[in-house]
């Protein structure tokens, strides 16, 4: 089998603050093939955005720093690339879109100027050719009257339109990998549906690999091929999307799925996950979820649980799968 497009191994990204140092991403590994979509799910502070920033080489340093691991993209370890090379990759072979397009677009330049910049920089074409390409891109992302829109400023556009512009900028150089950090969270549902549809179309057309970061399990279910669930900086479960929803194996994933009020859900009370996420400076020993877990036993506090295979391609970091034994790495029988 050929090498995956992206392979993240034991990634560790730390931040230094006044209160001390903590690992926002702690020993995270996953792989992504060409044309594949992975959804990274987690709540605030789970480390999902920092994972994406680490891949893009955009972790602000200081206070942040990649302290360990490896990120291989198209065969090269990004952590060893000089900044000049990284700059060529960013906006070229890999691109990122963010939650709030207003903060990612420069308010004092027209949309056109911002689009040309990337095209000229990466494709080495002149301004006229860049303009033609920009019109083509805006048309591609469903913006009506693209030629006129080029001369407008971001504030003259709605949120949905700005997100389309961001997507156009990201697509400018036909990236192989698109990182989308909560791209629809700030949008209304009817606009969210439009943007997700657009992303799906483009992903299929260009066979892009996509990392979709979101807290919305609905978005994951509709968009991703596989899922990684994060909690307190660690991956707690990875699985193909159908498998994850059918057979969630980590108690945190189970809790998340149960606590969403579904449209087709009936019932008087929502099931909740008790307590709150621990502070990154006061992480409990062993499993970080144990204090909130209904299945926790003393063994859970002994050591950080490793990823344990449930079925091929489906792993969860919970020793309940091994009958609360730390020395087994493969579940004998999946626990429902």
């Amino acid at each position: 089998m050929s090498e995956p497009l992206l392979s993240v191994r034991n990634l560790k990204t730390v931040f230094k603050t006044e209160d001390g140092q903590f690992a926002a991403v702690d020993d995270v590994s996953f792989e992504l093939n060409e044309g594949e979509v992975i959804g990274i799910v987690g709540e605030s502070g789970s480390g999902k955005s920092v994972t994406a920033l680490s891949i893009m080489g955009l972790v602000p340093n200081p206070p942040g720093r990649i302290a360990g691991g490896e990120i291989r993209f198209e065969g090269r370890n990004l952590l060893e690339l000089p900044e000049r090379e990284m700059r060529r990759l960013r906006g070229g072979r890999m691109a990122m879109i963010f939650q709030e397009p207003m903060t990612s677009l420069n308010p004092v330049f027209t949309v056109g100027d911002q689009l040309f910049e990337g095209i000229i920089e990466h494709e080495g074409v002149g301004k006229r050719a860049a303009r033609d390409r920009a019109v083509e891109l805006l048309d591609k992302v469903g913006i009506a009257a693209p030629a006129e829109r080029l001369d407008q400023y971001p504030h003259q556009m709605s949120g949905g339109m700005r997100q389309r512009v961001m997507i156009a900028m990201a697509l400018a150089c036909n990236p192989k990998l698109l990182l989308a950090d909560e791209p629809t969270t700030a949008l209304d549902v009817t606009i969210q549906a439009q943007i997700l549809d657009l992303l799906r179309e483009l992903q299929e057309e260009f066979r892009m690999a996509v990392i979709m970061i979101t807290h919305n399990l609905g978005v994951v279910a509709e968009f991703a091929h596989k899922v990684m669930v994060m909690y307190c900086g660690r991956a707690v479960e990875t699985a193909p999307v159908g498998e994850l929803f059918e057979r969630p194996s980590h108690p945190y994933t189970q809790g998340l799925l149960r606590s969403i009020p579904h449209l087709d859900h009936e019932g008087a009370r929502l099931r909740t996950i008790k307590g709150t996420v621990p502070s990154p400076f006061a992480l409990p020993p062993g499993c970080r979820f144990a204090a909130r877990c209904e299945h926790a036993r003393p063994a859970c506090a002994e050591a950080e649980p490793p990823m344990i295979g449930v079925v091929p391609d489906h792993e969860a970091a919970c020793i309940r799968l091994t009958g609360y034994r730390h020395d087994l790495t493969r579940a004998t029988e999946p626990v429902a």
Binding site: S158, G160, M161, D188, V189, T190, I191, Q192, A193, Q194, L196, D197, N216, L217, G218, V219, V220, A221, E222, F223, V241, G242, F245, L257, I260, H262, L263, D264
Partner: peptide
């Protein structure tokens, strides 16, 4: 109807007819 159909459902492969509204508010 459009509003209800636009919500992503946390159930992979849930085949639903989606009414995608054109344009914006």
């Amino acid at each position: 109807r459009a509003l209800l159909s636009a919500i992503p459902v946390p159930r992979p492969g849930a085949g639903r007819e989606r009414v995608i509204l054109q344009g914006e508010v």
